[in-house]
Design a protein around this nucleic acid. Structure first.
Lengths: 212, 212
DNA sequence: GACTACATACCGACTGGTTGGTATGTTTCA
DNA sequence: TGAAACATACCAACCAGTCGGTATGTAGTC
């Protein structure tokens, strides 16, 4: 009976800082986010911050890694994996990505895509952590794409890897346009074009719309 | 008697600041670029800066507008317009965009795409200037896409506007991945996928130019 | 053509607040 | 008891923005 009912099991300062970093940095950008901003949002002090991170840059790297872990779990649990035909898994991946795009811009955009734009020259450590996050994630679909290519049987002038990265490019670009237009709609339409492309490549009817 | 012959007519402080802003902001990001950075690069003083711009935000807006004018001139002079068939003009646009991607990352990426990621929430004025730059530019291809759709004659489930914006999304996303990977190659491959998509839509062979 | 009145372009020292980071406690818990 | 996990107080550098000033034009007027 004396459970931890009311308190949602407040985790330690490091985890709280990384959690709020995902939200705040997506909203304000990395450079414009001060360490005090993060401490305030996480309800910790500067001493706690520098106990866990040697510098702001190190938090950036840790935030990118934390993002990778968070999204990995999300996609591992996604329902589209159950499709028997790999072509349906590829399209299902896109439908799943599409279903995530809704509400506040900062809720569905990509942390590492945002961060790497700012830090790609000034901080190689953060850039590499962001690169790993994006490129490693692309491997998740790449396997299904490769399987779908075998099913289709054609010998195309492109690789599974390049198409998987194209997926990520379209998503990142869709986020940029959604931010610029302050409206997720343009991102959804871009994903529809990508889905149509994949359907054409794999000789699938373009139908099957939104989610499942 | 010593005339002003040799000097290449050094323009005024405002123009110089906007010119260096295009380079420096793409390299460091907007928030991480200080006014002193810009003044140093432009060879002007802070007094000159605040004579021409009321605030850093106002420079951001002016830089986005300056970017629009610069790129407008570039695309107006581009050679792909000469194609008679609008489908070739659409593909020619993509080939032209592709030809621009080379060398240093900060040399071919997009200023407004970079800026809007950082400022979309904190500065509506900059966000809107960036949105106008991207969305207005998309109109350039949109006209050719619409003409190409008429030539093809099909009634697709998509609009010229949405495809034109998809072009911009792919480009913006390709820039993000090029920055993350520190290599333009991935951007080129993404553009190849986009070109293949367009060729399929317009029933054009995925290869280069004109065959029916 | 010279004098006044005003405008534009630019200079650089200065300010008050913010920043990333440090130095030094205090609490928690194995 | 001792180390890990925090908190408090503080600092030097940096930041956007201010302000008093100069140099150069330029339009109007007598």
């Amino acid at each position: 009976m004396p459970d931890e009912e009311q308190k949602p099991a407040r985790p330690n300062a490091r985890t709280r800082l990384l959690d709020v970093a995902m939200v705040v940095i997506r909203r304000k950008g990395f450079a414009a986010t001060s360490i005090d901003d993060l401490c305030r949002a996480a309800g910790v002090t500067k001493g706690a911050f520098f106990h866990h991170f040697a510098s702001k840059q190190e938090l950036g790297v840790a935030a990118a890694d934390h993002w990778s872990e968070t999204t990995s779990a999300l996609f591992a649990d996604a329902p589209y994996h159950r499709h028997a035909d790999p072509r349906d898994r590829v399209l299902g991946y896109l439908d799943f990505r599409r279903s995530l795009i809704a509400g506040e811009t900062s809720a569905f955009t990509c942390l590492v895509g945002t961060m790497v734009q700012e830090t790609h020259e000034s901080s190689p450590a953060i850039r590499d952590a962001c690169r790993n996050s994006i490129f490693d994630h692309s491997k998740v679909v790449e396997a299904d794409i490769a399987a779908a290519m075998e099913v289709t049987g054609t010998v195309p002038g492109w690789t599974a890897s390049s198409l998987a990265l194209h997926f990520q490019a379209v998503l990142q670009g869709a986020f940029v346009l959604a931010k610029a237009g302050n409206d997720p709609e343009v991102a959804l339409q871009s994903l529809d074009h990508l889905r149509r492309y994949v359907a054409l490549l794999f000789d699938r009817s373009p139908g099957k719309g939104t989610e499942e």
